[in-house]
């Protein structure tokens, strides 16, 4: 391993590790791109792809991000954008969970859908995309529906969970399992021009409060559907929450929910 460190020290340009050298080290020493990334970050070298992060996210924070395992539950409108942004952020391990294949009505908003992907599993599309844009990231695709039967197993060794589900009933089950396993949960939901975001830490019951009156598993999205821009907005807010949980900066949406109205451009904070 000292050989790898020595190589990286020689090939780094300042404190940046160019992509070409990361790939060379991976091939030459028989390591994965991710393994090289971890060694480089531990040495204080920033893979050059993250150089525009550096005044926002330090090299040591980038290492913390790389060491984090995030589960994205649901890989549709929200989930596609969430996976994309987590991957570019440099999360080391993402588990993506969704039972569905792409259908024509997904094409208006789901990032990884396209005519040629119709009929293909959403989690496979996510894995293919992650490999293309950031091979340092490992994405584990789970083509199954999250439930109380498999939830505990799915969330083994997961540090943070992102809720990108389309069912209120399953969300509440996810919330219970996260509470039991003491895992922070970043909640997001969308419907038409509207969306909401909140973060629930272990010991809190924000999701139960948000959905205390829900009886049929759906909200305004049942009538309104979802346009292209709402998932992108809410997903981005969720990923910002994930980033802050990892690096411990700023203020999260703990015990708060943002209600976002893109029709009138209103953002309302609700305290729980």
């Amino acid at each position: 391993m000292e050989e790898v460190r020595s190589f990286l020290r020689k090939q780094a340009e300042g404190d940046l590790l160019p992509w070409k050298q990361q790939v060379f080290a991976s091939t030459f020493f028989g390591l994965t791109i991710g393994q090289v990334e971890k060694i480089a970050l531990e040495l204080g070298f920033l893979p050059s792809r993250y150089q525009r992060n550096r005044n926002t996210i330090s090299v040591s924070d980038q290492l913390r991000i790389f060491k984090t395992h995030v589960a994205v539950i649901g890989c549709g409108g929200l989930g596609g954008y969430i996976v994309e942004e987590l991957t570019r952020l440099g999360i080391g391990h993402i588990t993506a969970v969704d039972p569905d294949v792409f259908e024509e009505h997904n094409l208006n908003r789901q990032l990884y859908s396209s005519p040629e992907m119709l009929g293909k599993p959403k989690v496979e599309a996510a894995q293919k995309r992650v490999t293309e844009i950031n091979p340092a990231v490992t994405l584990t695709p789970l083509k199954c529906a999250f439930s109380t039967l498999n939830g505990v197993d799915i969330l083994q060794n997961v540090d943070i969970v992102v809720d990108a589900l389309d069912s209120i009933t399953v969300r509440l089950e996810l919330s219970d399992i996260c509470s039991e396993a003491k895992i922070p949960l970043v909640h997001g939901a969308i419907g038409g021009w509207y969306g909401q975001v909140s973060t629930q830490f272990p010991g809190e019951d924000t999701l139960q409060k948000i959905y205390s009156r829900a009886t049929n598993g759906k909200g305004v999205e049942k009538g309104l559907g979802n346009p292209s821009f709402t998932p992108a907005v809410i997903a981005s807010l969720q990923v910002a929450e994930v980033c802050k949980i990892i690096i411990g900066q700023g203020s999260t949406l703990a015990k708060r929910k943002l209600h976002i109205n893109l029709l009138d451009m209103e953002i309302i904070e609700i305290q729980y």
Partner: peptide, 29 residues
């Protein structure tokens, strides 16, 4: 349902000059 930006339940009584905000359920992904 919020009174003056704080979450309340349906049995909550209102006071003079309260602002009651009411939001629909949002559950899509």
């Amino acid at each position: 349902t919020l009174i003056n930006h704080r979450h309340v339940e349906e049995d909550q009584q209102l006071q003079e000059d309260d602002i009651l905000s009411i939001f629909p359920l949002v559950g899509g992904g």
